[in-house]
């Protein structure tokens, strides 16, 4: 249904124009290329600190399915999923909200033939472009450190993009619901809670049963499982379930964002 809506209404050229505006704005900020390039630096630091540093304390980890892996192999895919999530969210919540509320960028754009949904998609496409670059770089590091194989890394790449897409879409929907900056603390807090309890640092199997049920309903859990399964080279039907969850999330996020934007700006 969403794809039908998209096909009927969206002009790639106009979406492209929205992306182009972002690229232009980006290049005007000081030190921005450095900021952009260093975005890749951050997940690698996490990998070195938690994967290698804490990994040395943990040693090996016995998973529920009986496999024994190094701790770095266990956490690296989770780090990748988390980085895809936070990259997409920062672009679609913080920056998107700022443009919508203060910079009046969207009102200016919407005074032209560009439609709200195209704005939303353009913003998302922009978030995804950055995300793709970071994800690729991160995977190169993982392969170099022997945490996954090249072939599987190629499979992880689209999966990580899907994670970014799903969070980006929901982030956009959420930011159309925001009342003010105060609400962003809630987003950040929610994001941090997901980061802590999605089987990121230790297997979900260790969690108390109640927490486990809750966690298994949350999106980062599915993202981590999907990325981890592919990075470990263990495809299975379960992975399709996780991917389906993320696709549904993308569709729902886009739908809400487009509806809300239409209502907020087109009267």
């Amino acid at each position: 249904m969403v794809s039908a809506v998209l096909a009927a209404r969206v002009s790639p050229a106009r979406v492209g124009a929205v992306v182009g505006r972002n690229v232009g704005a980006l290049r005007s900020g000081p030190a921005y290329w450095l900021v952009l390039a260093s975005g890749f630096f951050e997940p690698v630091l996490y990998l070195l600190s938690i994967g290698v540093g804490v990994g040395a304390l943990v040693g090996e980890l016995r998973l529920a399915d009986g496999r024994v892996v190094e701790y770095a192999v266990f956490v690296a895919p989770a780090m990748l999923a988390v980085s895809a999530m936070s990259g997409a969210l920062s672009e679609t919540t913080f920056n998107f909200f700022f443009k919508m509320k203060y910079a009046k960028t969207f009102e200016a754009i919407l005074a032209t033939p560009v439609r709200p949904l195209e704005v939303a998609l353009g913003e998302l496409a922009w978030a995804m472009t950055r995300s793709a670059v970071y994800t690729g770089a991160f995977l190169v590091v993982m392969v170099a450190m022997g945490l996954t194989r090249v072939g599987w890394a190629l499979a992880v790449f689209p999966a990580a993009l899907l994670v970014g897409l799903a969070f980006g879409a929901v982030g956009m929907a959420v930011s159309t619901l925001m009342r003010g900056w105060q609400d962003f603390d809630l987003v950040t807090t929610g994001q941090f809670a997901l980061f802590l309890f999605s089987g990121t640092f230790s297997p979900v199997g260790d969690y108390p049963p109640v927490l486990r049920v809750v966690v298994e309903a949350t999106p980062l859990f599915h993202s981590v499982e999907l990325v981890r399964g592919l990075a470990a080279g263990l495809p299975g039907w379960g992975l399709l379930g996780h991917a389906g969850y993320l696709l549904a999330m993308t569709a729902a996020g886009l739908w809400v964002a487009a509806r809300r934007l239409e209502r907020a700006l087109c009267r």
Partner: peptide, 12 residues
């Protein structure tokens, strides 16, 4: 809770 307890279980 997440890190200290979760990861702590695997660290001596």
């Amino acid at each position: 809770v997440s890190f200290g307890v979760g990861v702590g279980r695997y660290v001596g």
